[in-house]
Amino acid sequence: MTTPAIETEGLSKRYGETVALERLDLSVSRGEVFGFLGPNGAGKSTTINLLLNYAKPTEGTASVLGYDPWNEVVECHRRVGILPDRYDTYDGLSARRHLQLVRDTKRATDDPEALLERVGLADAVDQPAGEFSQGMEQRLALAMSLVGEPDLLVLDEPFTGLDPHGVALVRDVVAAEAERGATVFFSSHVLGQVQVVCDRVGILHRGRLVDVGSLADLRSKLDLGDDATVEDVFVDLTADSVRSGEGVR
């Protein structure tokens, strides 16, 4: 367990003229809860897509749990739990079937009902996912990421579409998974929650990592008072986009 959970070196992704990610050097230790922040279009999902082999890098290298994320997909994904952004579930399949697919492919032994109960979907086990509300769908996706006690959870905006109970649920799940020893890497705009659960945060801006550290580190480095929140840090570091409203390129 000496290799970092996630390590990238010079990781870059360009889409034509658009530089979505520019030479990202990042290391996330095992057991850490890492919050990945940044304005819309900063490159958070791009980074996650690269780490999960949804996309291939233009340049650079990465390792996920010690594996090459593009050439050792099977070994790597067996130990990673994934909650993507902008996904869709299978309308005709029940929540149970969704979890069975993940469980059987991962060769895990989880009980779908127990997982669904954990995310508050105990009543919807056999309901087709096509009938789910947005928040229910997000809970199902969260349950799918938890199958097989993954060593690393990668969650892209896990709070999307959730009511306050759901937000608290995600926070508790993240804390519980970290307690179990899992590493959690997630992107979010819900800075109040990030502040509560994260050991460290990284702030991405226009494809570049502008700062990384614990909240205390960032506060002192930026000369923001002791009571400065993650939001204050975020605004300070990405001020130009906030002022000019050009966060999205």
């Binding site: 999960l52 790597c76 993507p84 902008r86 996904y87 869709d88 579930t89 492919t105």
Partner: peptide
């Protein structure tokens, strides 16, 4: 179709090669 809707992301997230 799954690529457009996004359900392919779950499939690609499984321990499977493409």
């Amino acid at each position: 179709g799954e690529r457009r809707s996004g359900s392919l992301k779950f499939v690609l997230g499984l321990p499977l090669t493409r």
